[in-house]
Design a binder for these strands. Structure first.
Length: 348
DNA sequence: TAGACGTGGAC
DNA sequence: TGTCCAAGTCT
């Protein structure tokens, strides 16, 4: 990745960082959203554990969805040392419903490494070696928790920069160019606040649809706005259609027990608790119990890359050939991923 | 490297 | 209902 070359590629004339940085920080001082994992603007950073935990939870996930999970995790495990001692099944259960479950397994693996190291490393490069921490999260933790002048680029920053510099290249091809342009803005002072200000601006003002340019502190510096292109950028290539898949799930239960299983650690819903089912790609699995089975209905669930229709069958938990027969008082549907909660909702 | 990987809210 | 998309990472 040659930032200089990427800079040369853009024909856009960008705004002067000398103008952008104080304007954006001034706006952030007045309008920063209050969040449980955020230190107020201009104050000492939040502890690295909370910064890390929130950044992992926020990967491809909305602030609204994360709040309750963040409160629950920090109550159960106030420090990275405490989290490091947790059981994986408990962490998976507490993560249930948040999605992208590889994050939960990486979270625990990362906590254990960090605890063994005696604490979080304080550079982007060292942070990026840890499980579940990639280019975005390593830069975010380094900037926000350790006051390092790293360039933090998430989807918000990509959008803000694409508009500020009127980058016309479609995503995702424009990414290297946007990173290089973002780097021209990163300040040496208050880099953490600057990163959060860019993201807040993207989340609240410079939104994907109907950007509120009239309220934007950078509106007179924004090349896309000058060109009347703000809402058009960044350009995106069209997405392929979502295929349909189907399968069957079995709800084997009576008044006292329910049959569940732990899904394989890797792959879709990896490591989560589930009801036994067929594969969802056409592969057949035998019923997990003797039956007889009665059809309860169908569950429809949209994943990122396919749409699933699951036929749900109910029957007695007798002649069980696979899974784990759980006493109903030990079964908490809140520890199920979203799809399986829908299946459970059909239970008699 | 492009595809796999969840979920729920907004429009 | 359909489509987009939200503080990405891993392989």
């Amino acid at each position: 990745m040659n930032n200089r070359a990427n800079l040369r590629e853009t024909s856009a004339v960008g705004p002067d960082p000398v103008a952008v940085v104080p304007r954006l920080l001034g706006w952030y001082d007045r309008h920063a959203r209050v969040l449980p994992w955020r230190a107020p603007p201009g104050t000492a950073p939040m502890d690295p554990y909370r910064v890390w935990l929130s950044e992992v939870m926020l990967q491809q996930t909305t602030v609204a969805a994360v709040r309750a999970y963040f409160e629950r995790f920090t109550t159960l495990w106030p420090t990275v040392q405490a989290l490091a001692t947790a059981e994986e099944t408990q962490v998976m259960g507490e993560w249930a419903g948040l999605g992208y479950y590889a994050r939960a397994r990486n979270l625990l693996a990362c906590a254990r490494q960090v605890a063994a190291m005696g604490g979080f490393p304080d550079t982007r490069q060292a942070l990026a070696q840890l499980p579940g921490i990639g280019p975005y999260t390593s830069a975010a933790i380094a900037a926000i928790a350790f006051d390092r002048a790293e360039t933090v680029v998430d989807g918000n920053v990509e959008r803000v920069v694409a508009r500020l510099f009127a980058v016309d290249t479609p995503m995702p091809a424009a990414k290297p160019q946007l990173v290089a342009l973002a780097a021209t803005l990163t300040p040496d002072r208050r880099p953490g606040d600057f990163a959060q200000a860019m993201m807040d601006l993207g989340a609240t003002i410079c939104t994907p649809r109907n950007p509120a340019c009239a309220l934007c502190p950078l509106n007179d510096l924004c090349r896309a706005r000058t060109l009347g292109l703000a809402a058009e950028l960044p350009r995106k290539s069209p997405k392929p259609p979502r295929p349909q898949r189907r399968g069957t799930a079995w709800l084997a239960l009576d008044a006292s027990h329910v049959l569940v299983e732990r899904r394989p650690a890797k792959g879709l819903l990896g490591g989560t608790l589930a009801f036994p089912s067929t594969g969802w790609d056409g592969s057949e699995h035998p019923a997990p119990a003797a039956g007889p089975w009665q059809e309860l209905g169908e569950v429809r669930h949209i994943f990122t890359h396919f749409e699933l229709h699951l036929t749900v069958l109910a029957g007695p938990p007798q002649g069980v050939s696979r899974g784990l027969l759980l006493p109903r008082r030990d079964f908490d549907p809140a520890t199920l991923p979203g799809l399986m909660r829908k299946v459970w909702a059909l239970a008699p």
